Amino acid sequence: MNSYVVQFLRLLLLTIVFWIIAFCIFIFIRYFAIGSEEGVIVTTYHISDILYFGVVLGTLIGVIFTITEFLFDKFLSKNLSLALVLTEKFIIYLLSIILSLNYVYPLVEEALNLNISNEDGWWKESRHFWLLVGYFLVCSIIFSFIKIANEKFGSGVFFNFLIGKYRNPKEEKRIFMFLDLQASTTIAEQIGHYRYSELIQDCFYDLNRIVSKYNADIYQYVGDEAVLSWKYKTGIKKNNCVELFFHFKSRIERKQKRYLKKYGLVPKFKAGIHGGELIVTEVGSIKKEIAYHGDVINTCARIQGECNKYDETLLCSNALMQDLNLTNKFKTKYIGDLELKGKEETLKISAIKLN
């Protein structure tokens, strides 16, 4: 399935669930108050009504919210200022909630036998509407905060911060990939530092479009290098840690006309992959982040550093390759033993290519 479709469906599910819960809570709180304000004493608690209206309104808003967020994130935000994006989103959400309530209010009036104003333009003078708009904006801010935090820290990392999972160091088994632009110094000299920065920005933008498909976390960006990470089982599942590299490579190649027109070149990347046990912990009180400590990091960087020496684009430790299920789609070539700094033992590495 197309990665955009998968990302959209995942966002759609999470968004609809969020807004259904949010509106069910709102309707529950307002259930008795509306009846009292309209001159009707509500003595029976109808959980089915609350769930029904919460599901209807939550689904309507969730679908609109998802489409808007997805289109802006994938196709518009890169070229628009944050202020303009927020303004345009607010207008869309305001119109959508007016249209949605025009559909839902008559259902509420009939089900609860209330005389709720719902004629044309009712929302201008309705306290209920503006109260709901205020609630909607608060929920939108909460949703956006969670979404931005997830994008900033990586999927699931923000939740781990909240629960303090890595407050104390923990040992985990993970896979890392060091992804680096080839001939970066030469390219910077050819096109200048400003356009070089734009090139890196475009490349990593293309990378970001596919990381969720392969369940990868972006640990950090260091200049023209990106460091990606997977939980060990996630990384070897369906060869995610290998498939991501070749998908990224093919994505760049498919857009080569755009890169040639803008920069006069097609960027090429090299990568090293390795996995194993390491320590995960929170570091810092200002600009707090999750840090990984252990030989896996240093070894993976060393493996990537060997790519130029052997004229290969993807090198992988044999220890990790043994756990991968590489099909006939790939071909491997044994490279040799990599000497590890400060250690007597060596690490066997191999190159991976597409057949």
Rank of each mutant, 00 (worst) to 15 (best):
G223Y: 03
G223V: 12
D224F: 03
D224S: 03
A226T: 02
A226S: 05
A226H: 02
A226E: 00
L228G: 03
W230M: 03
W230T: 01
K231S: 13
Y232S: 10
Y232R: 10
Y232L: 10
T234Q: 15
G235S: 08
I236D: 03
I236L: 13
K237H: 14
K237R: 15
K237P: 03
N239G: 07
C241E: 10
V242H: 04
E243Q: 10
E243R: 10
E243V: 01
L244I: 15
L244N: 06
F245Q: 01
F246S: 08
F246V: 05
F248K: 01
F248H: 00
S250R: 14
E253N: 12
R254C: 08
Q256P: 00
Q256C: 07
K257Y: 10
K257N: 14
Y259W: 02
Y259C: 01
Y259H: 07
L260S: 11
K262C: 01
Y263E: 05
Y263M: 03
Y263S: 06
Y263V: 07
Y263P: 02
G264I: 00
L265R: 02
L265D: 00
V266W: 11
P267A: 07
P267S: 09
P267Y: 02
F269A: 08
F269D: 03
F269E: 04
A271F: 10
A271V: 06
A271C: 09
I273A: 04
I273C: 05
I273F: 05
I273N: 01
G275I: 09
G275P: 11
G276S: 11
G276A: 06
E277D: 13
E277N: 15
E277Y: 15
I279M: 13
I279T: 05
V280W: 12
V280T: 15
T281M: 09
E282H: 08
V283Y: 10
G284N: 02
S285A: 07
S285G: 01
I286Q: 13
I286E: 14
K287A: 07
K287S: 08
K288Y: 04
E289S: 12
E289K: 14
E289L: 12
E289V: 06
I290G: 04
I290W: 06
I290D: 05
I290N: 13
A291V: 14
G294K: 12
V296E: 04
V296Y: 03
T299I: 09
T299S: 07
C300R: 12
C300M: 14
A301Y: 14
A301P: 09
R302C: 06
R302W: 08
I303W: 00
I303K: 03
I303Y: 01
I303P: 00
G305Y: 00
G305A: 08
G305L: 01
E306Y: 04
C307H: 04
K309L: 11
K309E: 05
K309C: 06
Y310V: 09
D311C: 06
E312N: 03
E312Q: 15
T313Q: 12
L315E: 00
C316Y: 01
S317T: 03
N318K: 10
N318Y: 02
L320C: 04
M321D: 08
M321Q: 13
